[in-house]
Design a protein around this nucleic acid. Structure first.
Lengths: 227, 227, 227, 227
DNA sequence: AATGAATGAGTTTTCATTCAT
DNA sequence: TATGAATGAAAACTCATTCAT
């Protein structure tokens, strides 16, 4: 809600209130509604009404209802993997060190419900809108996963971690976290000592990395990383 | 699955009057279509046609379209956790031994697309049909997860594995597998040396358990399991 | 309910229970349901079920749903005006004497809800089934009203009552009673000292005839009825 | 009726965008069709078409088909009993004088087929739409009948008419008229010298009041009204 | 004679999209 | 730009009627 106000500073022309913010307001409204009800059960009327405009106005900005969800994902998908991937790609050393450094950032970012809402939406609507999944694969997964794969491969080859199948290692790294983020509200069961509805991504991340990192420890009789 | 075949063999009477098999045939057709198109985009007409009956006939067996998806999940949800849970509950010893024993069975079962189709469907339709998720939570998750939690707690207390948060350990165990099963066709990217569309649940399971089990290894200076 | 048992005496063949009573049972069931819900909102299935037979069996006795309501009215319309009309037609004298004699019989007969149910039904369904009203007009109204008209005409001509338009007099005689019988459950309002839902046809009849008969009194200076 | 014509004149803008008149046009169309065919046999499509709009447009103004008939009755039920009741309530004197004064007004009003169409409709649809009858009872019958009852009671107590049960007297007054208005086209039989389909409410009213008033005449040996 | 599974035309209702204003 | 009235193509659901058994 707060970031919906963004870009509406004092220097905007007085008479045309945040005209150029309209598309974003519509996308915000749409995301909320799609999240609550699903794409098919959300009407264009509802989106427009929640954004405070008329049904017809939506069609000034988007050619169709499908275009709305597409723009929605498009908007969200851009900034996800940025320099992080670059940093991973440039890294040499124990993968665990780098991952440990990124973990809190990742946890913090993923604690924003409006950020996780988009991939959740994509999971649900992918059957009827394959292009959404395609965008995710091309612009998020397709960049992050190879970087991580390379990270594990390098770490493995250089002896920082024991030999593992790097493709699988990536999946093992991400699995528990993504499962929690994307499926917990469907399949999640209560855990004692957790906020209802959220066991806390940080708590899970801690436990997961602790086990996962230990599982990657090179065999003791092995030499230290070369050089 | 086996009893779905019953009475639809070559020796079936005449093509009509198969009252007993009809509901199952309709559910099969519905599952296919829901999987391909999603619930909202599948019409009752389509379901009926694929099952080889008329639209009206569907309503002889199900009071509404919603009842179809509910029956679908209900039918699938029953046999999932059976004696497996009982065996887990009765187990004493290293959790990893038990899990290693179950892994191939689990992998085999989950290789059947019609079995994984149901939880995938639930993930997608849970927003508009919360009762589906509820069924899963009550009858699958709510039975399997506590059993596994207890398994890890016991293994941890008895020193077979190092001390871990058992709730989180369960999530770490299941995460990579479930993520792959439920999300791979949305977010999955190609992996070299894998069948297109499937990296092979067995391959993932191997790699995952290898890392995960290693990560649970008790510290070497610790005593052997008590007694 | 009791008269549905009629004709099922001990001497009926044991194995084919009251086969020939089936149509009547179906008509009884249909009348109940049409009265409760209206013709269009009653399904053939409901009629059959209430009569204790299957849907298909109904079609052994009636060619269509329309035929059921027609048979229903036909069955009820026959015995209404019988010898009563004959007696009215043969009468000579003060119409009020004759009417007073018939009033209790009429009241008694009309207190049976299953008897008034039919004309009520006809009122409601006449738009879509004009033939029902036609039957009523031909076989009930068309016989009773002319007889009554003649009764008033004769009474008027012979000086028993003051000169009145006999056509209108009939309507004035019947109006309050029929209005009460046919419309009271729609438009009727509560009357103190009356059974809820029924002010009592007898009470109305008393008051009505008292006023109506007084209103027909010949003028005092008139001669007594001619010799 | 008069304001229903508003804005539909020749000078209407363009044939479109007549938002204000639309509901009334739809109600007019619906009343015609319900009268001709009954509620259940009239489709929403027919109503819309007769009103010159599309099926979907009807749902811009009414949330359901049921809402149409309800609005129909609601619109008609308001203006029926207005100041007439007030005048009756304030009256002191011979009830017959007042009734005679109102009779022509009543007859004139009830000669409009579109006015009587509504109560006729209510009679027919009351089984499936009890709220319609309820509206009539609360807002028409429940106001007019008590006023008339009081009128007779007062007239009776003050000696203008002979002692009568006022509740019944009201029913005797209204019976012939309402029966004719509401039931004549179902049960009515031809009367010589009458327009086909209508014996003339005025003619009936004349005859009825003549008899009814005479029937209320105080006994001659009685004193004149009080004082 | 009796059943009830099966049909499919018909009905209400929804909603993305258009377009006159 | 913006509105919202209007459209019409679906879609879920019903039910009288048929017919194989």
């Amino acid at each position: 809600m707060s970031d919906r106000e963004r870009d509406t500073g004092e220097n905007a022309p007085k008479f045309r209130r945040r005209k150029e913010a309209r598309p974003d307001e519509l996308l915000d409204a749409a995301l909320d509604l799609f999240t609550e009800q699903g794409f098919d059960r959300t009407t264009v009327e509802q989106i427009a009404r929640r954004a405070g405009v008329s049904k017809g106005a939506l069609y000034l900005y988007f050619p169709s209802k499908d275009a709305v969800i597409e723009a929605l994902v498009d908007r969200a998908v851009g900034p996800i993997v940025g320099e992080v991937v670059t940093q991973i790609e440039g890294y040499r050393g124990d993968p665990r060190v780098l991952l440990k450094r990124f973990a809190p950032l990742f946890a913090a970012r993923m604690s924003d419900p409006r950020i996780v809402a988009v991939p959740k939406l994509v999971v649900r609507e992918a059957v009827s809108h394959p292009q959404l999944a395609q965008m995710y694969r091309e612009r998020v997964i397709g960049r992050a996963v190879p970087a991580l794969t390379a990270l594990f491969r390098q770490g493995s080859e250089d002896g920082y971690i024991r030999p593992v199948d790097p493709d699988m290692a990536v999946r093992c790294l991400l699995g528990p976290v993504l499962m929690h983020l994307l499926l917990a509200d469907v399949f999640g069961i209560r855990v004692e000592g957790a906020t209802p509805g959220d066991i806390g991504i940080a708590r899970l991340l801690d436990a997961h990395l602790s086990i996962f990192f230990a599982g990657l420890e090179p065999a003791p009789e092995q030499e230290a990383p070369h050089g």
